[in-house]
Each structure stands twice: as structure tokens, then as C-alpha cells.
Amino acid sequence: MSALQLWRSVLSKDLRLAARRRSDAINPLIFLLMVITLFPLGVGPGPDILSRIAPGIIWVAALLATLLGVDRIFKDDYADGSLEQLCLLPQPLAFTVSAKMVSHWLLSGLPLVILSPLLALLLNLPGSAYGALSLSLLFGTPALSALAATGASLTLPLQRGSALVSLILLPLFIPILIFATSAVESAGMGMAVHGQLAILAAISVLTVTLAPLAVAAGVRMSVN
């Protein structure tokens, strides 16, 4: 079997399993909506303030929602032994685990992209920034998923790893946050955003290419 066929199998099995346990994917999204609701309640519903801080809020909430979904990536496979079977396949593990990253993105990154106009609406984002927000999420979330998988693989054997994962991951998320929010802000002010989006895409390409190596090393360490 070619590595590509296996990759597809791993991905479709993951999606099938997610379909059986929808709440795992949906809960982080509801969490995201709730966090976003808290801000108008906290700082007041004034449309000016909201639209000024909207890019930051949406992106910080997206980072937090990503953290909530981290456990889903490997925990079950680790607990029931599927992960050690993945390690024992003749195909390279780094490639196989990238399928898990993609399934995480499809279930946590992509829904964010789709939800983004709603989030923008809630926070009174200027109309000109809607596109930039969706694009920034589209280009930025793959890197988040790749980093999330890295963090997950490193903390697998730990009983209480979730707080630690946040500690590890949040600093690594910072560049993505900076360029993404800047893109949305610039778009809101009617300026060009190609630069920021290009950098975001570059970060994602770099992360998605290199992270599987770290994830594979982490998974081998954890399974051991």
C-alpha cells in the first residue's frame, strides 16, 4: 500500500470517528462563541470599541478554542493502542501523522473560517475586514493545527497534560496572532493586507512541513 493510500485511510477513519462523537468537535466552537459573547458584556456594547478590538478578540478566542481541541488529536488513539499500530506501519510515521493534523484542521480550523463572518458581525467588524478575517483564519489555522499536534504528541503519556499543553503552545502561537490581527486591522482601515497574509501563509507552510517530524518524534517517544 502506498503511503498516500494509508494517509487517506487514516484521515477518513479519523473523520468517521469524529462523526460518531460530534460533541468533541462542536464543543470548542461553542466555547469560542461564548468567549466572544463575553467581551461585549465585559467592555460594553459600544460599536466603536468592539470594532477596534474585534480582530484581537476573535483571534485570541480562536487560539483558545484550538487548545481545547488538542486532546482530541492523539489521546484516544494513544489510550486504545491505535497509535502504536500506526508506529508499526511500514509507511513513514511523519507522513501518517500529518493526516491527523489535517483531520484536526478540518474539524477545528475550517469551521472557524466558515464561522468567521458571524463572529465579525457580532463584534461589529468593518465590512471591508470580513474577507481579511476569513483569509487570515484560512492561512493561519493550519499552522495552529500543526503546532497543536506537536504539543499533543509531547504530552501524551501525562495524566494531566492539558494545562501543560497550553503553556507550551501559546508562546508558539504568538507570531500567527500578530500577523493575523494586523491583517484584519489593516483591512479595516482600508489598507493592503497582502503582506501579512503572505507571511501567515509562509508560516503555515513552514510549520505544516516541519511539524510532522517533531510530531513523529513525539509520538515515538510517547509510545515507548
Binding site: 508562546p171 504568538i174 507570531p175 500578530i178 517533531a214 518524534a217 513525539g218
Partner: peptide, 22 residues
């Protein structure tokens, strides 16, 4: 030590990106 090594390497790749982005 293995886990922390992997994280340190991931961090070092990110460090320049973080630095310049900040």
C-alpha cells in the same frame, strides 16, 4: 529529556519568527 529536547528544537525554529514578528 526527550520531550523537552523536541520542544526546545521546535522553539528554536520559532524563536527568530517570534523575534521578528514582535
Amino acid at each position: 529529556a526527550k520531550a523537552a529536547s523536541i520542544l526546545a528544537i521546535v522553539g528554536v525554529v520559532n524563536l527568530p519568527i517570534i523575534h521578528y514578528s514582535v
